[in-house]
Computed example of a mutant assay.
Amino acid sequence: MRLRNTAVAALGALTLLIAVPSSAHAATGDFLYKVGRLPGVPSGLADPQSGVCINLDGATEADPAFAPDNFTTSTATVFLDFDCNGDVYRVMNPGQRLGDRLKFRSVVFS
């Protein structure tokens, strides 16, 4: 009797794991930033993919993105250069907001 109850509980837990969608491939939430010249045009990413470098729409060589707000559940690393290259970067914890002075062109989420 106990073995059967244990088996039923294990099967139920397995079914629940399979049925619940996994967010392992996405940083749930919004990553907001501004592009263009001050005061900037608001832009952002909704539920961005994790582990992939994202070049930001609207960011250019002349005018990088600025004023990032990381409202995702993941750590965001913003880079001054495109393609997450270079040694100029900043790590942002979930919920962190940085000011207009931070310039960046690409981001990757943990």
Rank of each mutant, 00 (worst) to 15 (best):
R37E: 14
N55P: 10
T72G: 12
L11H: 03
F104R: 01
S74M: 09
L102V: 03
L56M: 01
L17E: 00
A13F: 13
L98S: 05
D81N: 02
P42M: 12
A7F: 08
D63Y: 06
P68G: 04
A26R: 04
A65S: 02
P48W: 13
A19V: 14
N5L: 11
V107E: 03
G29T: 07
L11W: 02
K34D: 05
D47R: 11
S74D: 07
F104M: 02
A10P: 00
F66C: 01
A24T: 12
S110D: 10
F31N: 07
M1P: 00
R97L: 12
G51N: 09
G95K: 12
L14N: 03
D47A: 10
T6K: 00
Q96R: 11
A9F: 03
V8C: 06
L14G: 12
V20R: 03
Q49F: 15
L32F: 04
L38F: 08
T72S: 12
N85F: 09
N5A: 14
G99H: 01
S22T: 13
T72N: 11
F109I: 06
G51H: 15
G58H: 10
A65Q: 03
F82W: 08
G29F: 12
A26T: 09
T72F: 15
P21R: 11
G99L: 06
G99T: 03
R97Q: 14
R105E: 07
K34A: 00
P94K: 08
A67P: 07
F31V: 07
S110P: 01
D100Q: 11
V91F: 01
G58P: 08
A46D: 05
I54L: 12
A76P: 13
D57S: 02
A46R: 13
S110L: 06
P21N: 04
C84H: 01
F109W: 11
V91T: 15
V20K: 04
V8W: 09
M1G: 01
N93G: 06
L14E: 14
A26M: 01
N70W: 06
L3F: 05
P39S: 15
L80N: 01
V88K: 02
A26E: 06
A62C: 01
S23N: 07
V41Q: 07
R105M: 05
V41I: 09
L102N: 03
V108Q: 15
A76H: 10
F31L: 12
F79I: 00
C53N: 12
A59G: 06
S74G: 01
A24R: 14
T73G: 13
I18K: 10
S106A: 15
M92D: 03
A67H: 10
L16W: 06
T28W: 04
G44P: 06
P21S: 10
L98W: 06
F104H: 02
R97C: 08
L102Y: 07
L14F: 13
D30V: 14
N5G: 02
V20G: 02
N85C: 02
N93M: 05
T6E: 07
A24M: 04
Q49K: 15
A19G: 08
I18Q: 10
